[in-house]
Amino acid sequence: MEPEILVDHLRFIATKEQAKISDAAISILVRASEGSVRDAMSLMDQAISNHSAETTAEEVREMIGLADRSRVLDLFSLIMEGNASSALNELSSQYADGADPIIIIKELAEITHWISVVKISPNTADDPTVTNDERDRGLKFSKSLSMRSLTRMWQMLLKILDEISFAPNAMIAAEMAIIRLTHVSELPSPDEIIKKIEKESLSIEQRNNEKKKSEKGSSYQPPIISLKNENLAVRAEKVIEAPLQKFKVFEDVLSLIRFNRDMKLLVETENYLRLVKYQPGRIEFQLTKEASSDLPSRLSKKLKSWTGEYWGITIVNEGGGPTIAEQRNKSTQDLHVQVMKNPMVKLVLENFPGSIINEVHLQKPEIKEAITDELINNEEEWDPFEDND
């Protein structure tokens, strides 16, 4: 059942039963029931029976074992600010008040998902199961936080939830999770790191040249580029060369696959991939109808495994050229057409009816030149169909 309808239904039941329960408590019950009318009514009956006066949101949270949503939002805010010390204190405070560390981590994941959805569609913030304070804070977070940081937070929380079951103590695992999350929130994105390196690399080489001129005879020590808020250093060599520059054309990628003897991937790449655009580290192509859906991911993983560098794979629906196999077949057909125009070949086929050309092998330049010279020198002396009797 939709949350709005379920909230109204619980209010109606509470009024009929002459039970006092706050709107915030009803919202928590609806959220905990996940749309199940039976579960929601069972939880409300349990909450009402345990309290003679008005049932509050705090009492419902304690009964269900949920963390205080507003305090989890406080913790979320401290994490995204990179304030590890205050975030750990807030976690300890909630734990002291009876909150389950695993529940807190799950609540953080739910909040991250909710804010991500609100960022894309702000109307989703108008959820009856969300309090006004939570709604206002969620909208504020959705405007101030980037989608990149939210998706990174979501991925890390999922991994943490998967690892927390193996930890010796749930609180210890939660504390380590908070430390990791706060430090990652400060890290620049990969794109920002690349831009920083590219911006600095040109000026570095200029400074190195000036230093070498002023300090002749001294040993050369490559400088270090330090990135803010990162325990990261990139040593700039005298000549900066991209590690994938040796794969200048797509044929070099095919040679790499062939060298590693992955024949299945080679056959699929040559037959089912229509190249649109290529540059070292990035391949854009269109798949044929016969291609398997996992071909792009397998190709990307293999190239990263063989080169040690990430390869960007982009799939488009149009604009692809002929496959390698189609190009090879066309070249073979064109070569056969050229061969059929050769006077000597024509003469052979005329004298041997039913003969066909199966394969055409191109001679090496030096052999071709030697044979041509020999034929020219003996043109009048040799006739392959001359009667020698």
Rank of each mutant, 00 (worst) to 15 (best):
R298Y: 01
K246E: 10
K341A: 10
K246I: 08
S297F: 04
T323F: 02
L265P: 10
M263Y: 14
R298P: 06
R328K: 12
R274P: 09
K289E: 02
T288Y: 00
L266A: 08
V249L: 13
T323R: 02
D252W: 12
Y278H: 04
W306D: 02
P280M: 01
D334S: 13
S292E: 08
E326C: 05
L265M: 07
I257T: 09
Q333Y: 15
S292I: 03
M340Y: 08
E284L: 09
V267W: 12
Y272D: 10
Q338N: 14
Q338W: 13
E251A: 15
N329C: 10
Q327G: 12
I313W: 01
Q333R: 14
I257C: 11
Y310N: 03
I283R: 03
L256N: 07
K246T: 11
Q338C: 11
M263C: 12
K289Y: 06
V249N: 14
V249M: 11
R258C: 15
L275Q: 03
I313M: 03
V337N: 15
L256Y: 05
K248A: 14
I283W: 06
Q279M: 05
R282N: 10
Q338M: 12
H336W: 04
L287W: 05
D252L: 08
Q333C: 15
G320W: 01
S300K: 04
K304I: 00
R328S: 11
N342T: 08
V337A: 12
D334R: 13
E318M: 11
I313E: 02
R298M: 11
E268Q: 13
K330R: 13
L273R: 02
F247K: 05
G321M: 07
V316F: 04
T288E: 00
L254H: 09
L287C: 02
V249K: 11
M263Q: 15
L254K: 12
R274H: 10
Q327Y: 15
K246M: 08
P280E: 04
I315M: 03
T314R: 07
G308Q: 00
D262R: 04
R298H: 01
S255R: 14
L335S: 10
G321K: 04
L295R: 01
I324R: 11
T314N: 06
M340S: 07
D294E: 02
E251L: 14
L299S: 04
N342P: 07
K330H: 14
E309Q: 02
K289A: 07
P280N: 00
Y272H: 11
D294C: 04
T307F: 01
V253A: 09
I283C: 05
V339P: 02
M340Q: 04
G312K: 11
E318V: 14
R282Q: 09
K264R: 12
G312C: 03
K330M: 13
Y310T: 05
L256K: 06
N260D: 12
K264F: 08
V339R: 09
T307I: 00
V253S: 05
R298D: 07
E270M: 10
V337H: 14
R282G: 06
Q327C: 13
K341V: 09
K301E: 05
N317L: 06
